[in-house]
Design a protein around this nucleic acid. Structure first.
Length: 650
DNA sequence: GCGGATCAC
DNA sequence: TATGGTGATCCGC
């Protein structure tokens, strides 16, 4: 496209939102320091004119238009409505949520500091105090020194060098990260055998039992744990007891008091709430919400526009309430398996097929090693313009795991799309079937079933049980030779630090980042992610105790049938959302609430307890169209590890 | 069931 | 020169 752009670079100044967008998703936020705007400008300048830049510009424009529509819709919806009355309804909901806050569990969010960079430092002390990054075309992490220049994970190296000319770029050593990750996770498991790993450098622990049994305060317990990690691995880890986390090498505990929690949330950027990314941040900003505290002031609008904003989700953020159930990720939870690869743009169909074949080979290997098959196959491709498309097909039978068959299916899906100029191609299989479980159950009468013991719903108790039966041997993978080429997720605390360090590098203890995750007794369910999957070498096994300890976790997702589980025993509690009486303990109730916060449930709760005057909208709302905005209700649970695998290079 | 979006890591 | 990979969820149709 020899298209010329006739305008001088300066004639069309980038909008603020575009400049920020170009800075990358990992710019967690926080009022950008002065430096940050300067840095963003440099990044935007370096990107200017590229296809990537044009694509970001397009997305930014789309979002801007979407926001305009939302505001218009808001003005319409608010018209003639008694907002005070709507607020009263929301206040009732808040009261109910508050009444069921569970502060009984001590949840810790642990996060290794600049993980990849720290491991590299162990192996090469010469790097100490030097600005360096790890990665190939894109950095997966940056040392603290490099972050001072604005270098972040996820940043292309050519831009990183513009920000920091002396930057040292070294390649990744995933095998090492995997080894170290295992060591650290093993230490965490001493404190909570049921911990949930979130990527290879993060995790959530419920230390309630450990503290009791060892007569330790949460702070003592976590200090000790961090010290042991340091002694045994020379790596530092930050931890947040309750809500936030601090780093580097910091530790923070929030008082387990509703008021303290709300005060903490009040000034916390909405962007730090798990589930709120760059897009939702802008949408919320458009109606005056920048911090969790702002949610309260806008509750009437949020209630009237629940569909767009997700009222219950935001109220929980405002209150600092979230799930406090920590469980290791389980194999049954897997929903898809796939592979994709980026390359320099290709138009030649023969060459595109060659790439597709490589991807098919990789997927085949992963499916075979993991013991998976499925019923639906999805082709994904990204044009050289960065626009992404998917094409799927569901079969009558299980997808073959053979490379040639996957390749053939991929070609079939791709055919009607050609000709194309692509920069990425991928394949994914969903509607999975677990071949290992099947083989196992056939072989022996495995009893992987829940002995549903309702009474022991408390995580604390579960913890004790621990039955780790280790079965699993899977192991696999092994990379042959390998060199890991794929970028394993960035992670490493991705972001934030850069900006914070810029203005607060000194004070090591305070800088929270991320999330408001485990507020109070609520920990953010570690989300899924396989992020640094490539890093752990032998994953599975150790990881979670395979045998599913049972317990079927509640999915919190949309419409599952509402638990009719009326087990016996336990007191009766009323769910604030659905009003249902449950025979369970507080913990069980919390789980139910998570689960209950589905679209349907929210709707019921609102009409039942809110009842906005005019806007009762019956059902006509449906057509209201409009941009959608519904953050994950309860956040997914995290996996963490079972899927780490080793990638090889091709 | 499909495709686009958004998000986490 | 040049901007990742894996997996999940939600929504509209």
């Amino acid at each position: 496209m020899p298209l010329k752009d006739s305008r001088p670079p300066s004639s069309t100044p980038d909008t603020d939102s575009l400049v920020r967008r170009l800075a990358g998703p990992s710019t967690t936020k926080a009022g950008l320091a002065k430096d940050q705007t300067e840095i963003n400008k440099i990044i935007a300048e370096a990107s200017k004119g590229s296809k990537f830049y044009e694509n970001e510009k397009r997305k930014d424009k789309d979002l801007t238009e979407r926001i305009e529509k939302i505001l218009k819709h808001r003005d319409e919806v608010v018209k003639g409505v008694d907002l005070a009355k709507v607020e009263q309804g929301v206040d009732k909901l808040i009261t109910q949520l508050e009444a069921h806050r569970d502060l009984s569990q001590v949840i810790v969010h642990v996060d290794m500091d600049a993980f990849f960079a720290s491991v590299e430092l162990l192996d090469n002390p010469d790097l100490a105090s030097k600005p360096f990054g790890v990665g190939h075309g894109v950095l997966s992490t940056a040392s603290y020194e490099a972050r001072k220049f604005g270098v972040r994970s996820g940043m292309p190296t050519f831009i990183a060098r513009k920000l920091c000319p002396e930057l040292i770029v070294i390649s990744s050593h995933f095998h090492r990260y995997g080894e170290m990750s295992e060591k650290v996770m093993a230490i965490f498991r001493r404190y909570d055998p049921n911990m949930a790993a979130a990527g290879c450098d993060e995790g959530y622990l419920n230390i309630t039992s450990y503290c009791e049994e060892h007569s330790l305060t949460p702070e003592e317990c976590v200090s000790q744990m961090r010290e042991i990690v340091h002694q045994e691995t020379k790596l530092t880890v930050s931890a947040g007891i309750a809500p936030n986390k601090n780093k580097p090498n910091g530790q923070f505990k929030l008082d387990f008091e509703p008021e303290a929690i709300k005060a903490f949330m009040h000034d916390l950027s909405i962007r730090k709430v798990p589930g709120v990314g760059r897009v939702h941040e802008r949408l919320l900003d458009s109606i005056g919400i920048k911090t969790c505290g702002d949610i309260f002031a806008q509750r009437a609008v949020l209630s009237l526009m629940d569909k767009e904003f997700g009222l219950m989700f935001l109220l929980q953020a405002y209150l600092g309430i979230a799930s406090n159930v920590i469980e290791p990720w389980q194999r049954e939870e897997r929903k898809s398996i796939g592979a994709e690869r980026t390359f320099n743009p290709i138009s030649d169909t023969v060459k595109i097929h060659a790439k597709l074949e490589e991807v098919a080979a990789e997927l085949s290997g992963d499916m075979t090693a993991g013991g998976w098959t499925g019923k639906t196959i999805t082709l994904k491709y990204k044009l050289d313009t960065y626009k992404v498309f998917t094409r799927a097909k569901s079969l009558d039978k299980w997808v073959s795991t053979r490379q040639q068959d996957l390749f053939a299916l991929g070609k079939e899906l791709l055919k009607p799309e050609l000709p194309l100029t692509l920069r990425l191609i991928g394949l994914r299989v969903t509607k999975l079937k677990d071949l290992k479980a099947e083989a196992e159950s056939k072989a022996s009468g495995i009893k992987r079933f829940f002995n549903s013991g309702p009474a022991d719903g408390s995580p604390a108790k579960k913890r004790r049980t621990e039955e780790v039966s280790a079965g699993e041997d899977d192991l696999p993978q092994l990379s042959q030779d390998g060199f890991a080429t794929s970028m394993p997720g960035y992670t490493d605390e991705a972001d934030a630090d850069a900006e914070h360090l810029a203005d607060m590098e000194e004070q090591s203890g305070v800088n929270d980042m991320k999330p408001a995750s485990n507020i109070g007794a609520a920990a953010r369910p570690p989300s899924s992610s396989a992020s640094q999957r490539a890093c752990t070498a032998k994953p599975s096994s150790s990881a979670s105790g395979p045998t599913s300890p049972r317990k079927k976790r509640i999915s919190s997702s949309t419409n599952d049938e509402r638990g009719t589980s009326s087990d016996a025993s336990a007191p009766l509690l009323e769910c604030p959302i659905c009003g249902k009486l449950l025979e369970t303990d507080n913990q069980g109730l919390n789980e139910h609430i998570d689960f209950c916060l589905s679209k349907q449930a929210i709707k019921e709760a609102q009409t039942a307890s809110l009842k906005p005057p005019s806007h009762s909208g019956s059902s006509s709302d449906a057509k209201k169209r409009g941009p959608k905005f519904a953050p994950p209700k309860a956040a997914a649970k995290g996996h963490g590890e079972g899927l780490l695998k080793f990638r090889k290079k091709g």
